[in-house]
Nucleic acid binder design. Structure first.
Lengths: 330, 330
DNA sequence: AAAGGCCGTCGAAGCGCTTCGATGATGGGG
DNA sequence: CCCCATCATCGAAGCGCTTCGACGGCCTTT
């Protein structure tokens, strides 16, 4: 049962257990040894009263807020479901460490980082979808706020970064197509805008893909909307009639690509092969279902949170963590 | 420029401006009148030092955390992009009111609500995707924590609820199909599980749909996966060969439905009409693009936050707010 | 049997802020 | 010309917690 009225304080708990407030604090934090009998009495009082320490008071006294921030990108081109998986994965993992998660958007930019750092509202932060040249990175370095980045900026010196090994993902796709006997293959990527922004992952996929498949591969940026996708695919097939394999790294486009291929008389899974880099749903929603390499959003989020927790505890973490891609064949 | 070292306090600002700490506080909060000259000097010092009040200290002293919680459902059947839009809409609006947003998941359940209420870590909360019988509602009432629900529980007495007018949405779809001259029509809904859970919105859509279209309509639950969708559509067409109109209230199924209809020889947009209740992308991603009624997630989130802010300020808000559905014809 | 250690507990000092009451300084009315 | 509002500002008292040093007991150790 949760307590009845508002404002159960540590003093109330102490009174009910017949001890000093500091003793209650030590029982709860375990920072000094307390006799089992006393501890029991305290815990009982805590339960009886439904006591939860006042977060503000605790943060003030201990200089630990018990909250981490998560800054989400809200630019277009971002795939919302993946972000959501990130967010929920992070919250779930954070709660395991008794931390809460504050949600911020990238709109707040560097100033937002300064704000949360200075107000001590969070102990650390996770920055998602970091770009190659990201203005927040410099601020972050200056603030010295413990943080973990998801993605890799150009200069990762002194930062902790976590990401899917996109280069390997590109390689895996190229290999898959090669195994299926595809000679000429192509990578259909995100929209021009994404490349223009020099988004790290897009470039790394390209490198992995090209690096593995040599001269017989090419990379085409690709817009998201139905009509443009159809056109792009048509042009691609026209430009290289010998094409028999395609990797698609553009989630919203997958459905349209399949249509365009069907229109062009390609029988996917038979004389033509397609592999997707993206969430399972996307690869499953089309017919035939496609093999795919997914962005393991939850795993990345968990890893990021775990690393951040270690940093907050003053422990070592690797500067760079690359999660291996898994190809799911359907 | 943000300040150099850590821990700029109000005392530092006061010293630099040559005033008392309390004066700085009053300048910042505007709760007492301060001469323009003094105020200027204070603001200058604040800017020079990059001062941001310590959130914990502020919350302790003022009993206002400046943070609201948002509890997201993470059950399956929930559509992730929509949740994300909610979350980002809420954060954006909250920041306009100088509030931060703490993210919680529904896994924490009622205990989570007790926790955040007792620890005073947030001032209020927004509960998403409330079900007809929701265990959190009772706790919420008991805690008396200011809150706004998105969705309607069975007993909304004394609660503030916001939602899309799903009944109207069902009606709008039925009307659209009627206008297109469809006689026999059907609503393809969410999976059985969603109905079994008695999710409010699913039921309300059904009511609106049936209420408008009389005896010539029917409602079929529908699973999400490709194969089951195809089967369901086939059965539906077999059961009612005269069917010429379909409303689909199941986002992941839309693509498969279109396929199944094509397989059955129906020419959508010509001798058969389909309307979607769901996000724009879903209706746009298929061919032909479909008319749709979207869940205006951002609007709902903004409204919810705005209402919550008013409640925190002790102002009145309507108990129940229904947002009108908009049909987008493509 | 006295001295030293350790264990379990307590009290008090602050963390940085808001807010209340008090205090000069100023100015208008009698 | 004095008194009393009014205005701008100050000082001090907490908010609820953590943490540091202190202090009795009790058990070893000599």
């Amino acid at each position: 049962m949760a307590g009845p009225g508002r404002g159960v304080t540590i003093a109330d708990v102490a009174a009910r257990a017949g001890v000093a407030a500091s003793t209650v604090s030590y029982v709860l934090s375990g920072k000094r040894s307390i006799s089992p009998e006393t501890a029991d009495r305290v815990m009982q009082a805590v339960a009886d009263l439904g006591y939860h320490p006042h977060a503000g008071a605790r943060s003030l006294a201990s200089r630990r807020a018990g909250v981490i921030a998560m800054m989400l990108p809200l630019r277009d081109g971002m795939h919302l479901p993946v972000l959501m998986q990130f967010a929920s994965g992070a919250v779930t993992e954070a709660r395991r460490h008794d931390q809460d998660v504050l949600l911020m958007t990238a709109d707040e930019g560097p100033a937002g980082l300064s704000r949360v750092a200075a107000s001590a509202i969070v102990d650390g932060l996770i920055l998602m979808d970091v770009e190659v040249r990201d203005p927040r990175v410099e601020t972050l370095r200056r603030l010295g706020l413990p943080s973990v980045l998801i993605g890799f900026p150009a200069d990762a010196e002194g930062l902790t970064c976590v990401d899917l090994d996109f280069t390997a993902a590109g390689r895996v796709c190229a290999d898959y197509l090669a195994e299926r006997g595809c000679g000429d293959i192509a990578l259909l990527g995100a929209s021009e805008a994404v490349y223009a922004r020099r988004t790290g992952f897009a470039e790394r996929v390209r490198e992995g893909f090209l690096g593995r498949s040599g001269a017989r591969a090419e990379v085409w940026p690709c817009p998201d909307e139905a009509v443009s996708v159809q056109r792009t695919v048509k042009e691609l097939l026209a430009a290289n009639p010998a094409l028999t394999g395609l990797a698609v790294h553009n989630e919203p486009a997958v459905g349209h690509v399949m249509h365009a291929l069907a229109d062009a008389g390609k029988r996917v899974g038979e004389d033509f092969h397609v592999v997707v880099i993206g969430p399972d749903e996307v690869a499953e929603r089309v017919h035939p279902q496609l093999p795919s390499v997914l962005v393991p959003a939850e795993t990345l989020a968990e890893t990021a949170v775990r690393h951040l927790m270690r940093k907050l505890d003053g422990l070592e973490v690797p500067d760079s963590t690359l999660v291996e891609p898994q190809l799911t064949v359907r």
